[in-house]
Write a protein that binds this DNA or RNA. Structure first.
Length: 427
RNA sequence: GCCCCGGUAGUGUAGUGGCCUAUCAUACAGGCCUGUCGAGCCUGUGACUCGGGUUCAAAUCCCGGCCGGGGCGCCA
């Protein structure tokens, strides 16, 4: 196993011998001297090979992106402006890369997104692409650690389901032996059932599937949803949990990923609590700006852009009208036209949707039917409310969207290793 | 689901009916090379998405397919 990495060279005393294993990112071969820029997951080093090195002739056949092992010593004075150098005594060609490369790793030409995704394994070798996923990992671990510290239990629920769960979103149909079933759009009903099971604070990180034929920079047909549900809690509690989880995700990223603030648009831990603005206040803002907002309707993208300009970064829109929220959303105590619900926004992008939920089974059944759904289809869910269901609240957070807004990525596909969209199911 | 735009060497582009035997960059191959570092210089290889149609003539115009990017709707 390799246990010496290129960044470890920084701690080596000059004159000492090192073995470097990695990819030959660039090769500059001259008559009496050659330079190989070697890359591994921690950084770059220049391997300087002089004519008198017995392996000098091997470089004539070396192709870019081949895997090499290089032995040499660290010089007293580094002459490469990469900042790391080794003076080579031997070169092993471990596995040669074919030429030409399907896409350039360091070439001074842009590559279309589609072409990049067709050769995603090579695309990910670019440091500026690979670090997106270091950021994603660090953000997720920050959120996970926070939830664990708050007494949450991580669970896994089925992604194959027999009935449409929430209505609304289109689902993917799957053949399941002799049955026709669906891929789940969200773990919503399962996490509520687990609250009824006595798992008072529960979360899941897993895929969610939406068969919507959208083609936009902020939608994927398969995305990672971070979902929580808390028993004996209301929507305010859930919002507190959310803003703190996001703050922890961001601080974990900023503290643990090299040069994080140089490529992130969110450069410091956000201030909590995040601003809250109610749906009704949004309508007032829009009317004040001369935008024809219709009270009772969802806020469209153009409206959200106007609202987003009023806030710098993350903010909540609360108390949405009952007509635009799912059946399981609890109503405001003093006004059933509105709900105990909220979206977390970053400018016009919706990151999270959440609410306190209905916990009374009779009310829940009525709300299902009010939405024109058949309550018999939800019997597996409804019966969990009949034997002691506490008040509860939670949210679902789109991980790729969160990464997209934190890093300022122009397209959400950039935040998925192998994105799934309307046309792409490869690789 | 509706709408708009696009598809030229491995990669990215220029080219709006004849001057295209298709531009440039990058990559690749070969040559020169003095510690290079977006190395440089010279030579070379390499392309019009597919199928119909219009025309004396199509990369270029028209229709359709396939593929891609985006807007709306919907959502995370």
């Amino acid at each position: 196993m390799k246990n010496f990495f290129i960044s470890d060279i920084d701690n080596i005393t000059p004159g000492k011998e090192v073995h470097v294993k990695g990819w030959a990112q660039d090769i500059r071969l001259m008559k009496n001297i050659a330079f190989i820029i070697v890359r591994d997951s921690t950084g770059l080093v220049q391997a300087t090979v002089k004519r008198d090195c017995p392996d000098f002739h091997k470089l004539e056949t070396l192709s870019r992106e081949s895997v090499v092992e290089i032995t040499g010593t660290v010089p007293e004075k580094v002459q490469s402006n990469i900042g790391r150098e080794i003076l080579v005594t031997s070169v092993e060609l471990i596995n040669m890369a074919e030429v030409p490369l399907p896409i350039g790793i360091t070439d001074n030409v842009e590559t279309d997104m589609d072409t990049r995704f067709n050769s995603r394994f090579l695309d990910l070798r670019k440091p500026e692409i690979g670090r997106i996923f270091q950021a994603k990992s660090a953000i997720l671990w920050g959120i996970r650690n926070f939830l664990m510290s708050q007494g949450f239990t991580e669970v896994q629920t089925p992604k194959t389901v027999s009935a449409a769960t929430e209505g609304g979103a289109e689902l993917f149909h799957v053949k399941y032996f002799e049955k026709n079933i669906f891929l789940n759009q969200s773990p919503q009903l399962y996490k509520e059932m687990l609250v009824a099971s006595g798992v008072e604070r529960v979360f899941e990180v897993g895929p969610a599937f939406r068969a919507e034929e959208h083609n936009t920079p902020r939608h994927l047909n398969e995305f990672t949803s971070i979902d929580i549900e808390m028993g004996f809690a209301d929507h305010h509690d859930a919002m507190h949990m959310l803003e703190n989880a996001i703050a922890k995700g961001i601080s974990n990223f900023l503290e643990n990923v090299r040069d994080a603030s140089s490529f992130s648009v969110v450069k410091e831990k956000p201030v909590t609590p995040f601003p809250r603005v109610s749906y009704l206040e949004c309508i007032k803002i829009l009317k004040g700006e001369g935008y024809p907002a219709v009270h009772g309707e969802d806020l469209n993208n153009e409206a959200l852009k106007i609202i987003g300009k009023k806030f710098d970064g993350f903010y909540f829109i609360t108390d949405w009208p009952t007509s635009v929220r799912p059946f399981y959303t609890a109503l405001l105590d003093n006004n059933p036209e509105y709900t105990k619900s909220y979206d977390l926004q970053f400018r016009e992008i919706e990151i999270t949707s959440g609410a306190q939920r209905v916990h009374n089974p009779a009310e829940l059944k009525r709300r299902i039917e009010d939405k024109g759904l058949d309550s018999d289809d939800f019997e597996f869910y409804l019966r969990t409310f009949k034997y002691g269901m506490p008040p509860h609240a939670g949210w679902g957070l789109g991980l790729e969207r969160l990464v997209q807004v934190i890093l300022g990525l122009p397209n959400i596909r950039e935040a998925s290793l192998f994105p799934r969209d309307r046309n792409r199911v490869f690789p």
